[in-house]
Computed example of a mutant assay.
Amino acid sequence: MRKPFAFLRTMVFVYDGGGSLRHKKHPVSASTTLTRILLRYAASLGVDVQTVTHAAGLSASVLDDAQGRVSVEQFNALWDEIAHYINDPDFGLHFGETASTNPNGNVLYAVLMNSATVGEALECYFRYHALMLDVLQPQLIQQGDNACLTWDIVVPGLVLHRHHAEAVLATLMTTLQHLTEDQIRLIEVWFAHPQPQDIAEHCRIFHTPLRFNQLKNGLVIHQKELSRPIFLADPDLLIALEQFAQQSLENLYGPDTWADKVIHAISNMLLHGDKPSIAQVARDLAVSKRHLQNKLSDEGTTYRALLDRVRKEITLDSLHNPHMNLCDIAFLLGFAEQSTFNHAFKRWTGVAPTVYQQQKEAQ
């Protein structure tokens, strides 16, 4: 029996019923909490915080706001300025190593720490990651017996600073190690940037094979690690923390629409190898099929359109996975015939799947 396609995604950009992106209350950004953590670490290395924040265009009033946000342009500029002032070619890695010692004020870290298992912690990470930084869109993809945690950049043309990319990888690895008391093991680490001249620190920190010049940055673990327990978890505290995190998300983006809820339900069903139907989604959302259809109609969309949208997004992501072929993708997304999948793919992209792959390889 084939294993289900493991797909989890935090929807940073949420589609409205008309097929266009629903406007958020702010552009993509980083939280002031994350920014202050970065500045505190830089200050410990002797960096003049006032100098780098001024150069990055950040004002003290913004940083003093605990619920404030920093534009992605300012956040990237801050990484550039700090890297310029310190003599550490592996600054991002070393910052990531401090993740478990910098949890103060970080609701995302608190949620992860109180999740029951690594898998549940990662689900929370995907769900609430935008509270800290919404320019990155995390996802978990199955590769045989392995699970790969990767990130997409939601701003076209934006390139992540090497130090920033390595900090994200090292931060998550350090956090998972801390939550499991150093029991979790990586299989390999992917870096989108070229290999630096000296990778001694990369080897010391990750203790696993390293692959550079990859399509994406990512951490690869065995799927059995997802069921590993988190020893400090407090289920009662988690309920309160998730309520706070969810309210914080709604303050940023507004409450979920019915389309958002359906997209999330469809993704979860595909994650578990189920074939999503509107009847099953309605049951999961505790409403009748007719009620759900009416709510989606009020938002200008349909269940079929949302299912098609999720299938398209998963398909295009899956084509980056060398361990999956077109037949696997079609089967796991619930297409009865390969020809039906091929027809849908051509409708999505304008070309046949094989032509699309050839074009991507040529690029």
Rank of each mutant, 00 (worst) to 15 (best):
I187N: 07
A77G: 13
P4L: 10
H54R: 14
I278F: 00
L169V: 11
N104T: 14
V52T: 02
A30T: 03
L271C: 09
A77E: 13
L186G: 00
N213M: 06
K3W: 08
Q50N: 14
W151R: 09
E250R: 11
T32C: 04
F341T: 01
S71V: 01
T10Q: 12
W258K: 09
S100W: 13
H323N: 12
Q74H: 14
L241E: 03
E201F: 06
L39M: 12
Q223I: 10
I221Y: 10
A130C: 08
F331N: 07
L219R: 07
E97N: 11
L252H: 06
R185D: 02
R309S: 12
Y41N: 11
R290A: 15
G144V: 03
L215V: 15
Q183K: 07
H163L: 04
W348Q: 08
H161C: 06
Y109A: 02
E313N: 14
C148S: 07
G17D: 03
Q143M: 14
I37W: 06
L215W: 13
F91M: 05
R185Q: 12
N325V: 06
K3G: 10
E166D: 15
E181W: 04
Q293A: 12
H164R: 13
P194Q: 01
N114S: 09
L39P: 06
Y15C: 07
P235T: 07
P209F: 00
V355W: 04
V14N: 11
H23C: 10
D328T: 04
V262T: 03
Y356C: 04
W348K: 05
D88V: 03
Y41W: 12
P4Q: 10
L219Q: 07
V154Q: 08
L270C: 05
E188G: 01
G273A: 02
H320S: 14
L45T: 04
G144S: 04
Y15S: 14
F331T: 11
S115M: 02
F95I: 06
T302I: 00
L45Q: 08
A259C: 10
L296K: 00
M11I: 09
D284Q: 15
R162Y: 12
C327N: 13
F335S: 00
A121T: 08
R185F: 01
L93G: 03
V107H: 04
F191R: 00
L307N: 03
V287L: 08
N106C: 10
E123Y: 12
Q357L: 15
S44C: 08
T32E: 01
C124S: 15
R40F: 11
V168N: 05
D317R: 13
A167I: 00
W348I: 10
L149Y: 14
W348N: 08
A200E: 10
Q359M: 11
G57V: 03
Q183Y: 03
N213W: 04
H207Y: 05
D90G: 02
A170D: 00
E242S: 02
S277D: 07
S248A: 15
Q177W: 05
H26P: 09
V189H: 00
L176K: 00
L285A: 04
A110F: 07
Q363R: 14
Y125G: 08
E250S: 13
A99C: 08
D256N: 15
D65W: 04
N217T: 09
R347Y: 11
R347E: 13
R127D: 13
N76R: 12
V281T: 06
